[in-house]
Design a protein around this nucleic acid. Structure first.
Lengths: 328, 328
DNA sequence: CCGTTTTTTGAATACGTATGCAAAAAATCT
DNA sequence: AGATTTTTTGCATACGTATTCAAAAAACGG
């Protein structure tokens, strides 16, 4: 049998009541220095650890954050996961990791989060039906969409400044002398890809530059494949804005196989600034997503909402920055 | 207030006792088809969800697996994380993700796992002091070291056949005509790096081939840097066995910058078979770690131990396979 | 030093579920 | 059909903690 040491055991050893033991471990409760000391000594001797389940049962609160992720294949997201885990840990929260294969969260994934009565949820790289999202609202569980925006919905979301960033990217490419431009989109139902396209297009339109659009799926293979198709099909643009880095690397590799020189024959710019973008083999010019700041903003909001739920909704956009390397 | 719907509510609506509701949701309990039906109908209407915390409190069991990871920067591990999450989910378990910065697990990381009374633990990419590991034993929490082996300890561990794999790698490189060999080690305190070195060395010794050893840290930057040093210092070997793929990519990039042709001037082989190894830019020959099988073995053991704790300890080695590409 | 206010403490209870036990119901057998 | 076995059900209790309330202790003021 698991020998579980309870607050009662500690109380007995310390010569106080169970209530007092509880108070020592409950932040904000008032205990005299003397009893605190006695309790801590006894607790240490017995190696006591408050049972989180009993706690949560009675407080109806947990110290668990649900973190939902889909595209962990994209090196951008492990980075995000790491940052979140560290940030939450610092505030005493643990991370329940949920992986989803579907673009839209399924109800059994949700089930897990609700069963564990998570204190808050971060959804990264995926969306969910409004109906499901409402469930969280009803249960007053704060929710943040990280790097995704639900349109016409009132949920908090933290993104990079996708649209203005893409505007700057367009301007930058034009300033580099590009004349025929192309955009390679990620999954077409993602807000990130749509916003990036929008911003890009706006500037090109202003300058009366036409551009072509290709669709892919935010993966390396996807980028590689679409690049091959582009080469096969028709004449190439002079610069391509690829909706994320990992796809951009696929594009670069494919183009190189066709003996195209980058940036001489073709300029390529990505988005994210994943670690590999700086590798000598690629030296990809890209737009840096300020992960740390984005995580910070998310955590701050969540903690506030956990503390005092308001349901306040907003889209936060954190400014990124252009990282110029050798592909443009 | 959070409107929590309890088994009592469902019982009332269904016209049965709370016990019956409980029995419907508890696997292995006996309920008549009729009441089950009534309960499920009522539960559906009320959107009832059993409270995991109350459950765990009384059963002293959880459906949570602690997954500890360190090197999530290495693309090998996100893959592992994904596989584990999916496998556990299939068996009704959720994953509490713990990230550690230190090579050896710290006590506050452990604390989290113990507080949540996890059903089992997977430690990937890190180790822990024996004293701490004993804590898990005392609490009868099954523990698996994934891709790490504690020496002289009695803990379960699941690895790839590092040593025999490295032997085959050595033989393979010799068969390719390599005469001067080198090994680039990962973090020197990891069993994986040591075992790989050992197997590699054994074959070379048998064939009376000497080899040199370089030390790095299992990161891209580390590989890149050590490769530069190798070029600067002395004459290069004809083939290098790099302890993992991500380092190998760094090595390749560095060597190429020095205008070395791979595999003509220098053969390189890695270990892991991460996705990037197959990218056209690298086409890295490597040893595939059979993640899926390794995960499967880990999950199977853990589930058995959760079901009926024995503390049985063993090191499982899963066979990998050589993936020949263009760098050798 | 005594009356008053403030702080600390312990007893009792509640959280939502699982489970042992006995009663009730259903099924089986003669 | 009645007796016996088996299955199902409800009652009551326990899990380990937080928290209310009243009592005890301490601090304070004159």
């Amino acid at each position: 049998m698991k020998q579980t040491i309870t607050a009662k055991d500690v109380a007995k050893l310390a010569g106080v009541s169970q209530s007092s033991v509880s108070r020592v471990y409950f932040e904000g409760a008032r205990v005299s220095a003397k009893t605190r000391e006695k309790v801590l000594a006894a607790a240490k001797e017995l190696d006591y650890r408050p049972n989180e389940f009993a706690r949560s049962l009675i407080t109806n609160r947990t110290k668990i954050i649900g973190l939902v992720m889909k595209g962990i294949q994209n090196p951008f997201y492990p980075q995000v996961l790491k940052q979140f885990t560290m940030a939450f840990k610092q505030h005493g929260f643990s991370v329940l990791f949920v992986h989803t294969n579907n673009d839209e969260l399924q109800s059994d994934d949700i089930e897990t989060l609700l069963n564990y009565n998570v204190a808050g949820v971060v959804i990264t790289d995926a969306t969910m039906s409004l109906k499901v999202a409402e469930t969280f609202k009803q249960n007053k569980i704060p929710l943040v969409f990280f790097n995704r925006k639900l349109e016409n919905s009132d949920f908090y979301s933290v993104c990079c400044n996708n649209r203005t960033a893409s505007q700057q990217i367009a301007k930058y490419l034009l300033s580099k002398g590009a004349t025929e431009l192309a955009y390679i989109a990620g999954n077409s139902n993602t807000s990130t890809s749509l916003e990036r396209e929008k911003g890009f297009y706006e500037i090109l339109e202003q300058n009366q530059v036409t551009f072509s659009k290709y669709s892919s799926d935010y993966t390396y293979e996807g980028g590689y494949q679409i690049a091959n198709e582009m080469v096969d099909e028709k004449q190439l643009p002079s610069a391509i804005f690829v909706a994320n880095d990992i796809m951009a690397l696929g594009v670069i590799d494919a183009m190189r196989e066709h003996a195209l020189k980058i940036p001489e024959d073709l300029k390529i710019i990505g988005f994210d600034n994943i670690e590999m973008a700086s590798w000598p083999a690629y030296q990809l010019t890209t737009w840096e997503q300020p992960i740390e700041k984005m995580v910070e903003a998310t955590v701050e909001y969540l903690l506030n909402e956990i503390n005092d739920y308001t349901g306040f909704a907003k889209t936060i956009e954190i400014e990124g920055v252009l990282i110029e390397r050798k592909t443009t």
